[in-house]
Design a protein around this nucleic acid. Sequence first.
DNA 1: TCTGGGGTCCTAGGACCC
DNA 2: TCTGGGGTCCTAGGACCC
Length: 426
Amino acid sequence: MSSIQHTRKIALIDCNSFYVSCERLFNPKIRKKPVVVLSNNDGCIISRSNEAKALGIKMGEPYFKEKEVIIKNDVQVFSSNYSLYGDISRRVMRTLKRFNSDIEVYSIDEAFLDLSNFSDNEIENVGHEIRSIVLKWTGIPTSIGIAKTKTLSKVANHIAKKKQSGVVSLIGIENVDPILEKVEINDVWGVGKQLTKFYHQNGVYNAKQLKNKSNTWIKKSSNVLSSRTAMELKGIPCIDLETKSSKRKSCVVSRSFGQKVEKYQELKEAIVGYALNASEKIRSESLVAKSITVFVRTSPFQNRYGFYSNSKTIDLPMTTNNSIEIVKAALNALEAIFKNGYRYQKAGIMLSHLSESTNSKNLFSSERDEKINSLMKSIDNTNYRYGRSTLSLASAGVHKRWSSRRQHYSKIDTANFYSLPTIKTT
DNA sequence: TCTGGGGTCCTAGGACCC
DNA sequence: TCTGGGGTCCTAGGACCC
């Protein structure tokens, strides 16, 4: 028998303050300064540097509420730049793939990596290696947690984030109870606000206590997801690594407005824009939609003008990814739910029941359909080359008083050769 | 007089994630 | 004045069937 042990080893690699780190790549002057990145419409704070966290700036907090602290401490503020973050994310993931192609890209800044092929003894060093290579090749700092299950690797990662070394492995540790005891129940992956409340009522305050609860009790009083979480804390894998990216099932495009919208015409323009956007997205993934939902709502935070929220779903006669058909259906849906006299804050469209487009002609396809398809293709090509919404339908509007705020935009375009970062290796 | 019950399918809404 | 956006999965309950 070999002395080298090959237990299941899942690493969770998480980019530190990802959006902030991306902005810092292109702006060395803000490396040591407190920095925050705002959500769309400059609404909330969604990424914070350690210096910003130390100032007490909270995650998800509305920007205007933190403005005083921000100004007082000269915090650098950025509007989000998703094409930049997406681009850097792809570079990070490509780098990770070199260690093993069995990778699950879990979100824009996180990936699970199967490292079972490495031995127990070397695994922590492998973690350090990954971390330094990613930093060297992309400039992005990461935290890495390694354990037998995804949920435990989340726990390990949670601890790694607070460590200078940035790497924590639970592999080979006989008794993880003392570690789990220090992890608050709401910090466990899969335990949100509601479950935290429920667990607190039942005397479960940390990960160790959840781990030691009986499986039948959890299943009976909660659901299978919760029991999976508890099993995974015990070190029994219940959640698989999803290495091949599956086609998505829905596609949402929605935005908050820069200014409240009251006019039907303006709401219409917004919806047309979202519908075009969503159609283009699913076309690029060779998907077709079966139904379309449009929703509108006023601000849930200011009810002095009355709150209104509604949605309408329309089933399309035939699955499609045709912009014109989707826009038409979207406008019908909007008409059904629009009410005069409200100050709308947000609207959106969802394409659902997506399936792969077969692209085959059927009884109903005609020469006209063919023409429309080639029109769609040329719209997509032009927009791809010259930027989104270069070509769109006239009803998408020109003035767009309603479009999002983006006051602190860094204007970095990684598609532009001259703005590529130079990474200093020290 | 006494009025079943089990199965399937679908959907809306909730909870969670980042 | 100003509070993001985009996903997934599960479950309860209704509709329908025999």
